[in-house]
C-alpha cells in the first residue's frame, strides 16, 4: 500500500515543454506565479488563461491529469474562499446572524479561488514535464551565483537528488518493518490519533537506525568513487540552452509585459 506513493509525478511524453531546459521552466513558473498575484482584473486573467492553456496544450499532458493535482487542495481552497467571503469588510450584500457577505468579499473569494486553481495548474505543468533530477540540476545551475556568498549549492542539490533516490527504498523498508511489527502483534490501525502516533514509535526507531546505516554506507561508496564535492566535477548531462530555450524566454517576457499592462483592467 505504501509503495504506491510517488513523489515527483512526472508524466513522460514527447513535447516541446518536456524538452525545455529546466531552468527555463523554473523561471517561467516563477514569473507566472508572481503575475497571478499582481493581476486584479478580468482582462489580466484572460491573458493568464490563454498563457496557461497554451502551455498545457503544448505539454501534451492530458488535462485530466492536471486536474488530479487540484483534489488534495480542495479543502484549502474552500476554507480560503469562505474566509474571504465572510470576513472582508465593505458594502453589505446579505447578512444573517453574525455573518455578513459583502460585495468585496464575493470579489475576493472568486479572485482567490481562481488564483489558487491557476497556481496549482501552472506549477503542475512544470512538475509533470520535468523529472526530479532535471529539476535539481536546474536548481543547482540557476542558484550557482549563491556560491559566492558561501551557500553550498552543489551539496544541497546532491542531497536533494539522493533524497529522491532513497524515498522509494525507505518506503519499502517502512512497509517491511511495519509487517514485521504487525506479525508480532503491533497495531497501527486502531485507536485514537494519540494512540496511533504512540504506536508509530516502534516503527520509527528501527527506520531511523537503518536510514543512518544506509547513509554511512552511501557516503563510503561515494568516497570510494572519488567523490570530493562539487569542485573539479564534470557533468554527464550538462545543461545547455538551445534555440527553443531562448524562444521560450522571449515568450515568458512577453507574457510578463502583457500581464503587467493588462493586469489592472
Amino acid at each position: 500500500m505504501l509503495r504506491d506513493i510517488t513523489i515527483g509525478q512526472y508524466y513522460p511524453a514527447d513535447s516541446v515543454i518536456h524538452k525545455l531546459d529546466p531552468r527555463v521552466k523554473l523561471f517561467g513558473t516563477l514569473i507566472y506565479v508572481i503575475s497571478l498575484f499582481c493581476i486584479k482584473g478580468v482582462v489580466g486573467f484572460v491573458v493568464a488563461t490563454f498563457f496557461m492553456a497554451g502551455m498545457i496544450a503544448l505539454s501534451k499532458v492530458p488535462f485530466k491529469f492536471m486536474v488530479k493535482g487540484l483534489k488534495p487542495i480542495m479543502i484549502l481552497m474552500l476554507i480560503t474562499a469562505l474566509f474571504n467571503l465572510f470576513l472582508t469588510p465593505g458594502d453589505v450584500l446579505v447578512s444573517f446572524w453574525v455573518l455578513e457577505i459583502t460585495k468585496e468579499g464575493v470579489q475576493n473569494a472568486v479572485l482567490m479561488t481562481i488564483r489558487l486553481i491557476y497556481l496549482i495548474l501552472g506549477t503542475s505543468v512544470m512538475t509533470l514535464t520535468t523529472t526530479p533530477n532535471q529539476l535539481t540540476d536546474g536548481l543547482e545551475k540557476s542558484l550557482r551565483p549563491l556560491n559566492k556568498i558561501k551557500v553550498p549549492v552543489h551539496a544541497i542539490a546532491m542531497m536533494m537528488s539522493i533524497a529522491l533516490r532513497f524515498i522509494p527504498i525507505l518506503i519499502e523498508e517502512t512497509d517491511k518493518i511495519m509487517k514485521a511489527q504487525m506479525a508480532r502483534g503491533a497495531d497501527f490501525e486502531n485507536g485514537n490519533m494519540l494512540k496511533r502516533i504512540k504506536n508509530m514509535i516502534p516503527l520509527l526507531v528501527p527506520l531511523f537506525v537503518s536510514a543512518f546505516r544506509r547513509a554511512d554506507d552511501l557516503a563510503m561508496a561515494m568516497e570510494a568513487r572519488c567523490y570530493s564535492g562539487g569542485a573539479g566535477r564534470t557533468k554527464m548531462k550538462p545543461l545547455t540552452y538551445v534555440k527553443r530555450d531562448y524562444i521560450a524566454y522571449a515568450v515568458i517576457i512577453v507574457y510578463l509585459l502583457l500581464s503587467l499592462l493588462c493586469g489592472r483592467i
Binding site: N133, S161, I162, R165, R214, D217, L218, A221, M222
Partner: peptide, 10 residues
C-alpha cells in the same frame, strides 16, 4: 549492499 551504493535514480 547493492542499494546503498547506487547514487543516481537512473
Amino acid at each position: 549492499n547493492p542499494d546503498n551504493q547506487i547514487i543516481a535514480s537512473v
